[in-house]
Design a protein around this nucleic acid. Structure first.
Lengths: 68, 68
DNA sequence: ATCTAAATATCCCAAATTGGGATATTTAGA
DNA sequence: TCTAAATATCCCAATTTGGGATATTTAGAT
């Protein structure tokens, strides 16, 4: 998933993201390294946080906008 | 998720979908009733199968097309 | 170049979640 | 109404997850 790329583009650390999403830094790290995958609810939180579509987050489209 | 609605619109049974997706009928049933949620890889299989965006599948947009 | 703090990755494990087989229940249509 | 197809639920082993703790890496100051 594009998480790392998106997060870096916004200039925030894994720790800040983790705090904002009410989770842990290591969890974010593992999503980014691909070691683990988030469940749907976590996926939605991330997409909402960055205001991108889930399809974009999952690299299924180049368009970050959720609406056509 | 919109799975049941999409599946019915295509006129296929849970069993056929399950077979096509290499899983079980009860698994599909539970996704539809909301008793359980699929992981990301399963989510992708479903979206690909029906050729809809994941955001649409998850009812985050009214637009079924993955591209804008 | 070195030192330090911030940032990121990894280890271990308990708890939660998942999918499958089997079976029960519901639905549709002959 | 009878029956077969379709859908839902029970139980459980196995996988997966997230968190605390800690190790490693990176970046910035001096």
């Amino acid at each position: 998933m594009k998480l790392k790329e998106i997060r870096k583009a916004r200039g925030i650390s894994q720790l800040k993201l983790a705090i904002d999403l009410h989770t842990n830094q290591n969890t974010i790290s593992r999503y980014e390294t691909g070691e683990r995958e988030p469940g749907i609810s976590e996926l939605i939180k991330i997409a909402d946080y960055f205001n991108v579509s889930i399809d974009y987050l999952l690299e299924r489209t180049d368009n970050p906008d959720i609406n056509k």
